[in-house]
């Protein structure tokens, strides 16, 4: 369960950000934005090394005291960033990976909607529902 999920365009502006409702939304926005430093660095490192280019999952970007930030980048340079509570030790790496895959699939569906203009903010209800299902539910 994530506390914040974001989709970032290849020009680095946010296409979609959703965070757990009770938290200070700005804090997560900053967190996602600053994580792009690490994403950029990883992407450029990937480009130089002859690593399997299809490896989209970037793994843990950086830990803060209370949260862990994970990243994923598609071949079209769209980035997904997920923030997870540090205390949630139950969440293992392969679960995170599968969450990203789900995100990627939903994002592809959004792109296939003929009424969606790529580059616009994502307003798809289906995408929203999928993201909500992966977020921490706060009553």
């Amino acid at each position: 369960m994530a506390v914040c999920i974001a989709v970032i365009a290849k020009e680095n502006y946010p296409l979609y950000i959703r965070s757990a409702p009770t938290e200070n939304e700005l804090k997560f926005h900053y967190m996602v934005h600053t994580s792009l430093d690490v994403v950029d660095e990883k992407i450029s490192a990937m480009g130089k090394a002859l690593v399997d280019q299809r490896e989209l999952y970037l793994g843990l970007l950086y830990p803060t005291e209370d949260y862990k930030v994970y990243g994923y980048v598609t071949n079209s340079k769209v980035k997904f960033v997920m923030v997870v509570d540090s205390s949630n030790t139950a969440l293992r790496d392969n679960e995170i990976r599968s969450m990203f895959r789900k995100l990627h699939n939903s994002y592809t569906d959004v792109m296939c909607n003929p009424f969606y203009n790529p580059g616009d903010r994502i307003q798809s209800r289906a995408f929203d529902n999928m993201v909500m299902s992966m977020m921490v539910q706060v009553c």
């Binding site: 296939c112 909607n113 003929p114 009424f115 969606y116 798809s124 209800r125």
Partner: peptide, 10 residues
């Protein structure tokens, strides 16, 4: 209609 979501103005 796979992947299609109608925007509100349609």
């Amino acid at each position: 209609v796979d992947f299609v979501e109608l925007p509100d103005n349609h």
